[in-house]
Design a binder for these strands. Structure first.
Lengths: 214, 214
DNA sequence: GTCTATATCGCGATAGAC
DNA sequence: GTCTATCGCGATATAGAC
C-alpha cells in the first residue's frame, strides 16, 4: 500500500511518524511536546520541524495513516473500489472485532477520544478531518445496516441511518467510560447487546478461518 | 441552595468561577490560561491564585457547581435525601429533556466532552471526579431503568445496568457527533428512538404543568 | 537537503510589597 | 486582597552549520 522509503529524508519522516503515533497514543495531543517526539525519533525538535510544518500537520498525518488501515479493513472499497467486498455479516463482525481489538490499545483509543472532542471547534486543525470521518462512517455503517436489516429473517423494521448514528455514538461513548474505568464496562459485550436488540446477533469469532479460542 | 455572596472575597470568587466556566466552556481546559480567566474577572493571575490554590482546583469547582444543578434536578435525593422523588417516568422524561436543553449550550457540552476525554489519565486533576460521576450516573440510571422495565406492560426483559451503560454511552457519543456537525444528528430524537427500542416511549412534554407547544 | 543551536514567547506557580 | 517581580518550563521560530 505505502511505498518503501528510499531517501534518508523519507526514512526520517517515517521514524518521526512512528514516534509521534506512539507518544500521542500514550499521552494525547496536548501533553506531548515536539521535543519528546523528536528525541524519540533521534533528532531535535527543530530537526523535526524541518520535515513537518508544525505539530498540527504531524497530528493529521498520524491520524490519516492509522485511519486508513482500519477503514480499509472494514470497508475495502473506500480505498480500493475494485477490492473484493466481504459479505455484510462478515463486515459487521469485523466492526465488533475492532471494538475488542481497541480494548488492547487504550492509548490510541484515548487519543481519538481526546482529539474528536478537541476538534469540535471549527478552528481546530483536525476539525475537517473528523467531520469527514464521521460523515463517512455514518454513511458506510448506514449502508451496512440497511443491507443487514433487509436480509434478516424476518426483516428488521428500523431506519438504518438512525441506527448507524446510534451505533457510532455507542462506540464512542463506551470508550469514554472504558477509558475512565476499564473494569466498569465491557465495550464488546455492550455492542453485541445493542446489535442483538436490533435483530443482528454477531458471532463471537469468524466462520471461515477464524480462531475459536482467541 | 447556594448562599448569597456577602464579603468582597466571595463576590470575587464567584466572578472568577463565572469567568472560568465561560472560558473553559469555550476552549476547554488546556487551551485557557489563568491569566485569561483572571483578566476576564478583572484581576491578575496572581490575584486569582489567592482564591484558588491552582488551575486544577478551579476546574473542579466549576465542574461541581454545574453538575450539582443537573443532578439535583434529575435525581433529587442525591443532594436532598428527603426531597420528594418524581415518579420514574417523569425522571426519564427529564433525562430526555436535558438532552434537548444541552442542544442549546454547545459550549458547556463541549467542555464536558473535552474534559471527560482529557481526564481519562489517572494523573489528570479531574480524573477522580469523572470516575465518580460516571459510577453515580450508571447506578442512578440503572435503578431508574430497572423500575421502568418492571413497571412496563408487558415487563421489559433487559438488564437495567447494561442498558444504563449503553444509554450513558449513547448520550456522550451523540454529543461528539453533534459538536462536530450540529446539523448531522438530532440528539433528542436518537435518544427517544433508543429508549423506544427498549419499550420506553417518552412523552414529548411533561404531563403535569408542562408546555405542550414548547 | 538535513539538522543543531539559540532566542523569544507565554505558561503555572511562588514570594513578598502594599 | 491584590499587586509586581520573578522562577523554571516547554512551544515555537529563525539563523546558519554540515
Amino acid at each position: 500500500m505505502s511505498k518503501e522509503p528510499r531517501t534518508k529524508g523519507e526514512r526520517t519522516r517515517a521514524r518521526i511518524l512512528d514516534s509521534a503515533a506512539e507518544l500521542f497514543s500514550r499521552s494525547g495531543f496536548n501533553a506531548v511536546s515536539l521535543r519528546e517526539i523528536a528525541a524519540c525519533a533521534g533528532l531535535t525538535h527543530a530537526g523535526l520541524l524541518h520535515h513537518f510544518p508544525g505539530k498540527e500537520q504531524l497530528l493529521l498525518e498520524v491520524l490519516s495513516r492509522r485511519d486508513e488501515t482500519d477503514a480499509a479493513w472494514l470497508f475495502p472499497r473506500i480505498l480500493e473500489p475494485a477490492a473484493p467486498e466481504p459479505p455484510p455479516a462478515e463486515r459487521l463482525r469485523r466492526v465488533v472485532e475492532l471494538v475488542g481489538r481497541n480494548s488492547r490499545t487504550p492509548g490510541l483509543v484515548g487519543l481519538y477520544a481526546k482529539l474528536s472532542a478537541e476538534a469540535s471547534g471549527p478552528d481546530h486543525p483536525a476539525h475537517h478531518y473528523f467531520v469527514e470521518r464521521y460523515r463517512r462512517l455514518r454513511a458506510e455503517l448506514g449502508a451496512l445496516l440497511g443491507a443487514l436489516f433487509a436480509a434478516a429473517d424476518p426483516p428488521v423494521r428500523a431506519e438504518p441511518q438512525a441506527v448507524a448514528v446510534q451505533l457510532l455514538a455507542l462506540l464512542d461513548g463506551l470508550q469514554t467510560q472504558w477509558l475512565l474505568e476499564p473494569g466498569a464496562v465491557s465495550m464488546e459485550d455492550s455492542v453485541r447487546d445493542f446489535l442483538g436488540r436490533y435483530g443482528l446477533p454477531v458471532e463471537r469469532e469468524t466462520a471461515r478461518g477464524g480462531r475459536l479460542t482467541g
